[in-house]
Amino acid sequence: MPRVAGRSVTVDTVNVEVTPLPGIGVRKDFALRNGRRIGVVTHRDGKIELIISKSDDPDACLAELPLTVDEASALANLLGAPQLVAQLTEEHRDLPGIHTRQIPVGTPFDGRTLGDTALRTRTGVSVVAVMRAGQVHPSPTPDFTLTAGDLMVAVGTSEGLDNAVKILKRG
């Protein structure tokens, strides 16, 4: 039962194929433009494995890499954030002096709210989205609870963004 992938930042959509693996879990994968498959096997106990098909045998897998939940979300952020930033940068091109940057949230704000950072007051930057575990949380409200490892997508001046990086790192 193919379905459209949850959220994609670019206009492209991919058909993710969901295949039940009885007794093991679920395989979710899709074909890349070059014909190879990429996806994950989610075990019933929550274990995640990244799978990439072989080039000479599309039925087989080159590798099955077990990922912890943290590793999977880190990888998802790496893959998802640049696209969002690139798109925002593109949109702001006509506004000189305005930049978009992704800023990691440090441990001082783990479990605290976006309002606690007081970024707008202290640096003038706007947080347009928070990336967590590959999910985009757009336009977060001040009561949005942060977790260490989140990536904030912030828009502002270079100076403001530099300050925001320091604040989010050190508290």
């Binding site: 693996l21 093991i24 395989r27 096997v41 087989a60 897998c61």
Partner: peptide
Amino acid sequence: IAKVLADLGRLGNRETPVVLSILV
């Protein structure tokens, strides 16, 4: 069979659902 498939890293292979549904 389940153990061998996991050990050999074949859970993501396309023929694996065929094997599993025969076992079912």
